[in-house]
């Protein structure tokens, strides 16, 4: 048995001629925070799509808690507790912020039509609990004043926050966050980083794509660098960031390190 929460083994994926992900290997230990960085178009988001079943890999395996999840439909992977957010801020626009949140919890009783028609009191009771929880999570994310607004009226940054908050409603085992701080103001980002650390202590495992190097330094236990579809290097954040090749990949310029 393996202690890793997530193991990606030899995963490849091409779109037409482009090798978006090329023979990637990546491990995420239980209760750790792993950062995934790399230049634009490196294949980070594509790797997320594959892990969460939104895309099928051409080759390779993805083990979540020692079970190969390749081929499982994405909603089933989510139900196992492996939940992702999207890079482009998206919300359920014509639903309120609160409704967005209340959609989160998995396998709610009232999501079955028979229970709605025949067990209304139980559904109602569960609904109250879900609502309480949603409100308290919204409060944490400074979104409480927006609870009854349409989610479509939120700014891009607020939509990012909402999608992170919504994943927390699912009681996840592991979260895959695609650029969670893009467009979020620095103060709130700091607060979020603190909260992600707390959630880690509570037992949630994270894999986070982020371009902001300072955020990655503060957050991660381990960092992987993806470049042109391949894992270039991995290790402690401090070591990886000072790696010459990494800087080269990011800046396309060897001299940048010295300058």
């Amino acid at each position: 048995m393996n202690a890793d929460m997530l193991r990606v083994k030899g995963v490849s994926k091409s779109f037409g001629g482009i090798k978006a992900v090329d023979n990637c290997n990546l491990n995420v230990e239980r209760k750790s925070i792993v950062g995934l960085i790399g230049p634009n178009g490196a294949g980070k988001s594509t790797l997320f799509e594959i892990i969460t079943g939104f895309e099928q890999p051409d080759a390779g395996e993805v083990f979540f808690r020692n079970e190969n999840v390749v081929g499982l439909p994405s909603f089933k992977i989510a139900r196992q507790g492996l939940v992702r957010t999207f890079q482009i801020p998206q919300a359920l626009n014509k639903m309120t912020v609160l409704e967005n949140m209340m959609l989160g919890p998995q396998l709610q009783r009232g999501e079955k039509i028979w229970n709605v028609l025949l067990r209304w009191p139980q559904v109602k009771k569960e609904e109250r609990a879900v609502r309480e929880k949603a409100l308290s999570v919204l409060d944490f994310f400074d979104l409480l004043p927006m609870a009854d607004e349409y989610a479509g009226a939120l700014s891009g940054g607020q939509k990012k926050l909402l999608s992170l908050a919504r994943t927390l409603m699912t009681d996840p085992e592991m979260l895959l966050l695609d650029e969670p701080f893009a467009g979020v103001n620095p103060t709130l980002s700091k607060k979020l980083i603190g909260h992600i650390h707390e959630l880690k202590e509570e037992g949630i495992t994270f894999l986070i794509i982020e371009h902001g190097i300072p955020y990655i330094m503060e957050l991660s236990d381990t960092v992987y660098v993806l470049n042109k579809g391949e894992i270039m290097t991995s290790g402690e954040p401090g070591d990886v960031i000072s790696d010459r090749c990494v800087l080269e990949a990011y800046l396309g310029d060897t001299d940048a390190q010295g300058g």
Binding site: F54, F75, Q90, E99, K112, T170
Partner: peptide, 21 residues
């Protein structure tokens, strides 16, 4: 009901609904 909430989420964005299981 929560059932209808899922329907509406599908109308709005299937991918989000799927990502939430």
């Amino acid at each position: 009901s929560p059932w209808g909430r899922v329907l509406k989420s599908i109308r709005e964005n299937e991918e989000i609904a799927t990502s939430l299981g």
